[in-house]
Nucleic acid binder design. Structure first.
Lengths: 227, 227
DNA sequence: TAAATGCCTTGACTTAGATCAGGGCATGGT
DNA sequence: ACCATGCCCTGATCTAAGTCAAGGCATTTA
């Protein structure tokens, strides 16, 4: 399939590999389909391999004692997840579920280890990716512990506006409730803060479209964390 | 130095390397000393290499807008830190400081990359280390966002008791104030929760020694997050 | 011995944000 | 057209934990 090949060569994990190596990666891949709401793996499962999102979207989440769910990550096309236990030889530390109909590429542990042993440059790329993710996590921890919710939201919006080309207006790819969970809060609080920020003319909310009026104000908010 | 050689062969990063390779690792290492409170690197510095703790203890931390500090990590002998910019090609995402007199081994970026290219097993070790760190971060984020402070403390104590052999009593390797920062709170709150847990006969505190009376109670607390 | 410094504790107060409860408004199925 | 479901908003109340302020003990330094 041309699609798969394309995806592999564009995902940061394998980007820049020579043709033959890309082929060898493709050879160990197994394609899988998941419906919306379908579980991919559960906390405690053995780490038999990791995944690359081809189409759709998956969430990685934990469930607390009371059954409250907290989303750690949301992955879309081109992103890799579930690789953590593959190297440590342990179990998956969180749950994973498709949040829309998804096509995933699966790389088994054994196949990958033999591949990496033959091609050290693949491992260098992987190290870079893990390091990037570590940076993101550090930022998230900083956010959670050093900033209050409005500050986290402002950071998130600024990040979004940098990712999407349009700097003055962004579109959420997830629901506001999910965003709340991602920022470590609850839908009610999210709603209140969005309307507060609207009334201060920082932003304008229209469903999932958010217009950013005052980037400087948002930047201040993201840094100081105070509304 | 025999010490260095010994350390290299025992640290997880170089575990399983043949003798001659260990020598070549030793040759590219630079030894550095840091006094208590001395800065090792700051957020935003260029990362020209990474460190391995030989003796002492270092903290990795972030500082908020108002100057509030949050410790992300504390590393002791045998552990690796500061590797993120080596692979991402970017700057350090956090600050680092010795919290006691420390001896560190420094590995430059180029030297390590050439080493890793020749020796795939090192890169697998590194992948495992980064994966585990990622997992720790995920746990930390989970803790911060869905548990309250008593729950985080209980989790920490249980983890400690698993690490240290003695399951009924643990010894903090850091000050209570530093522990507070690591758990995303402040010394006052830490103090209050410790005394509350003491009065509930869950634990008994004696300076840095903490006796764990009721493991089941602590486990509940860690899961439910509620005191 | 006295003073200073670092680390911890305690109390009174304040506040961000969680919880609880209710209602609005789409969409889709029957 | 109707009701169900999912998603979002709003208000009233409650609480965990942060802030501010003060003091207690050690250990170090003069």
């Amino acid at each position: 399939m041309k699609n798969i090949r394309d995806l592999i060569s564009h995902c940061p994990l394998f980007a820049g590999l020579p043709e033959d190596q890309l082929d060898s990666v493709r050879d160990i891949i197994i394609e899988k389909e998941y419906g919306k709401g379908e579980t991919i793996f559960s906390e405690g499962d053995n780490g038999i391999g990791f995944y690359l999102v081809s189409q759709g979207m998956v969430k990685i989440y934990k469930v607390s004692f009371e059954g409250k769910e907290h989303i750690l990550h949301i992955f879309g096309p081109g992103e890799v997840f579930g690789e953590v236990p593959v190297f440590t030889g342990k179990v998956y530390p969180a749950n994973s579920e498709a949040i829309k109909k998804s096509r995933l590429l699966f790389l088994s542990r054994e196949a990958f280890i033999s591949l990496i042993t033959k091609n050290p440059s693949i491992s260098l790329n992987m190290l870079a990716i893990l390091s990037m993710r570590l940076r993101q996590f550090a930022a998230q921890i900083e956010s959670l512990s050093l900033k209050e919710v409005p500050g986290r939201l402002a950071s998130y919006l600024i990040l979004l506006s940098e990712e999407q080309q349009n700097s003055a207006s962004v579109t959420l790819s997830i629901s506001k409730g999910q965003l709340a969970s991602l920022l470590g809060t609850i839908p009610e609080t999210m709603s209140r803060i969005l309307s507060k920020m609207s009334s201060m003319n920082l932003i304008e909310v229209n469903g999932r479209d958010i217009r950013l009026f005052d980037m400087d104000g948002l930047q201040d908010l993201a840094e100081s964390g105070k509304l």
